[in-house]
Design a protein around this nucleic acid. Structure first.
Length: 476
RNA sequence: CGGGGUGUGGCACAGGUGGUAGUGUGCUUGGUUCGGGACCAAGAGGCCGUGGGUUCGAGUCCCACCACUCCGACCA
């Protein structure tokens, strides 16, 4: 006698093979589909809805800090891209070129934007004359192209969607203030909206953005112990302004170069959400960005009164993003599917509940089932969603903390490196030490964190004098 | 870019030595079910990744390319 085996479509266990698990979730949760061009994915409605929620919140934060949206062209003439030499050097290896218009070769080839600093600079040079024209606080939502060799949905694709903020100011102080303000916006957004705790800090000389004077980032810790750079903010000084000849007449009637910033966050953050909160049953989405916050699953939907009760419940919960799953499938099938898609809260409603004036609420994050009275359900749901949001953050924070450890000497450093996560150490600031760490451990410098005290005054790598902390980690 | 793996109905896979393309699931229709991936019946659905080559004949053999995937290198 053979045991009856249920044919359950399963995903790879998260902690067995993280990479495979990630790909399984991305596909089975219906986030993306592949296109026929390597590294170019299709954001399916569920991923697009998630991205739109991210956009909505972030865009609001940009508006609140005085920014305006613009739309820049897709193409950059080669000569324009080449005006800032560090910038070209950084991006040239991975730009895609347009060489023909129809069948005619172009006199100058056009680069498909990998980032739009040069376009903004060209524009600023034309529209800025006086200190009265400053600052300009611009942002654009668009896609960019970087011809990556290895690709992975969300984390590394050849075309990806993002926002890029580009601002220009009369003084260095003001530009630096803006740089840090926007890093803070990203950090707040990650922590409050995506429930992803971050480390804020400054990039090393070798890791900073091509053409930037200083680069700041927020670094997140994924569930497998690898780091994900989740947002960056760059201070350009007046380097781009000089390269692009952007000048303005200041209050003293002198010609001056303005100071610039740029900052970006991309669909890569969706990969971060997946790898921060997901589990063996699939995606787990923070309520604040989940396309569906609540799904109502009617049980025995054919029985009189059940669907009506479910619809009435949905109406009462209209303050939330709520749907009823009325499809002709068994409840168990629906449970599994909504879990795969990470819907934060499931409400089961069947004849038994209706009779008792209750419903069953199942949390996606913990699996906990709570029987709650229908009376006052709005409040119960609101509280539960709040709890889920904050509990996700707490869990991720714990992961970040337990995976962040300090090393005073190089032997400890190497031992900790082998265990994954972030390693904090002092650092002399030398690139030679960064290279050595990479060779010995595979870790790269992530950032010098804003928070935290010095551990000593010695660089454990070279033994030289060290005046700063560095956080190291294996990255995505 | 280096190493490994994969490409056959929507999905997951099978198709020794070349000879008319299969299974499961899903899908459609009808019916019975419904508190953790239900069941019965009848149906529809395949340029075998692409392009060459060998052959009377290629899913199968050879070459090239493309894409996906894992590991590494590289990289904002």
């Amino acid at each position: 006698m053979l045991a009856v085996e249920k044919k359950v479509e399963q995903i790879t266990a998260r902690d067995v093979d993280f990479g495979k698990w990630y790909t399984d979730v991305v596909k089975k949760a219906e986030l993306v589909d592949y296109s026929s061009v390597k590294g170019c994915v299709i954001l399916r409605p569920y991923a697009q809805a998630l991205w739109e929620n991210i956009q909505k919140t972030l865009d609001g934060m940009f508006k609140d800090t005085g920014h305006e949206n613009v739309a820049m062209p897709l193409f950059i003439p080669e000569s324009l891209l080449q005006k800032e030499k560090d910038h070209v050097y950084g991006f040239a290896p991975e730009v895609a070129w347009v060489t023909h218009g129809g069948t005619e070769p172009l006199t100058e080839r056009l680069c498909v934007r990998p980032t739009s600093e040069t376009l903004f600079c060209e524009h600023y040079a034309r529209i800025i004359e006086s200190h009265r024209d400053l600052p300009k606080l611009y942002n654009q939502w668009c896609s960019v192209v970087r011809w990556e060799k290895t690709t992975r949905p969300f984390l590394r694709s050849r075309e990806f969607w993002w926002q890029e903020g580009h601002t220009i100011h009369a003084t260095a102080e003001e530009a630096m203030e803006e740089t840090l303000r926007m890093l803070d916006v990203y950090a707040t957004f990650c922590e409050n909206t995506l429930a992803m705790p971050v480390i804020r800090g400054e990039k090393s000389e070798s890791e900073k953005f091509a053409g930037a004077e200083r680069t700041f980032s927020i670094e997140c810790m994924m569930h497998d112990g690898r780091a994900l750079q989740s947002g960056t903010s760059h201070y350009f000084g007046d380097g781009f302004a000089r390269a692009f000849n952007i000048q303005f007449t200041d209050r003293d009637n002198k010609l001056s170069f303005p100071f610039q910033t740029s900052w970006g966050m991309s669909t890569r953050i969706i990969g971060g959400v997946i790898m921060t909160h997901g589990d063996d049953n699939g995606l787990v989405l923070p309520p604040k960005v989940a396309p569906k916050q609540i799904v109502i699953v009617p049980v025995a939907a054919h029985k009189p009164g059940v669907l009506d009760a479910a619809r009435a419940l949905k109406d009462r919960l209209s303050a939330f993003r709520v749907t009823i799953d009325e499809r002709d499938q068994s409840p168990g099938w629906k449970f599994a599917e909504h879990e795969m898609k990470g819907v934060p809260l499931r409400i089961e409603l069947g004849p038994r509940d209706i009779e008792n004036g209750v419903c069953v609420m199942a949390r996606r994050d913990t699996g906990e089932k709570i029987t709650a009275p229908l009376e006052g359900v709005e409040k119960a749901v609101a509280d539960l969603l709040d709890s889920i949001q904050s509990d996700l953050f707490t869990a991720a924070k714990k992961n970040l903390e337990t995976r962040t450890r300090s090393a005073l000497d190089y032997d400890t450093f190497k031992a900790l490196a082998g265990e994954g996560g972030f390693v904090r150490s002092m650092w002399c600031g030398g690139e030679a030490c960064e290279d050595k760490v990479r060779e010995d451990t595979g870790m790269k410098s992530r950032c010098t964190p804003f928070e935290g005290d010095a551990l000593s005054d010695t660089c454990p790598v070279c033994g030289g004098k060290a005046d700063r902390v560095m956080v190291w980690g294996d990255q995505y």
